[in-house]
């Protein structure tokens, strides 16, 4: 009835790494760090039109304990940076970070004393998205880049 009947008797070889990475990359739950207008596009990215559930990332977790990818969407002030870093520290490893939009990546048009000129000043960012705000497709692109990164990582075996 299932796949087994079509394949018949046999076996399949892989590595645990590959299997774990495959599972991880298709269940990268985002931590929505919506700080400004980019958050609206981030919602569209999760909504039915762009439908990020195709990539297994539809479950926006508002608890850092349950999330894997932090999407920093919007400009980040110095005061907010402490809260973001705290939430980032609460996320369990392995974790990834997307700096969404010009402001989160570089400070963008907020070239002033109160805004951190890029969240990479205090977070290890894996993917930067250009745009002001970026289209939801661009966020999906960043997510796919992160999936690619997850799939090529050493997750179980040591990288020696």
């Amino acid at each position: 009835m299932g796949l087994e009947s079509a394949l018949g008797e046999g076996y399949f070889t892989s590595r645990v790494d590959t299997l774990v990475n495959w599972a991880r990359s298709n269940a990268a739950w985002p931590m929505p760090m919506g700080l400004a207008c980019c958050a609206i596009e981030m919602m569209a990215f999760a909504g039915p039109r762009y439908d990020v559930s195709r990539f297994g990332s539809e479950v926006f977790r508002f608890s850092p304990r349950q999330s894997d990818v932090m999407i920093v969407a919007g400009w980040c002030s110095y005061k907010m940076s402490h809260a973001i870093r705290r939430i980032w520290d609460q996320m369990p490893d392995p974790k990834w970070c997307i700096a969404m939009g010009a402001c989160a990546s570089t400070g963008g048009m907020h070239r002033c004393y109160g805004v951190v000129q890029g969240v990479d000043n205090f977070l290890p960012v894996d993917a930067y998205i250009s745009g002001c705000p970026p289209r939801p497709d661009a966020v999906i692109h960043a997510l796919m880049k992160i999936q690619e990164k997850i799939r090529t990582e050493h997750s179980v075996t040591l990288d020696t």
């Binding site: 110095y78 940076s81 520290d89 002033c112 004393y113 109160g114 000043n121 977070l123």
Partner: peptide, 23 residues
């Protein structure tokens, strides 16, 4: 910050960023 002699980008290092190593 809104006094005219204050530089646009602020005084570097005058506001603390969070520590990048968890406690």
């Amino acid at each position: 910050p809104l006094r005219k002699e204050f530089p646009l980008l602020g005084i570097p290092g005058s506001i603390e960023l969070p520590s990048t190593t968890p406690e």
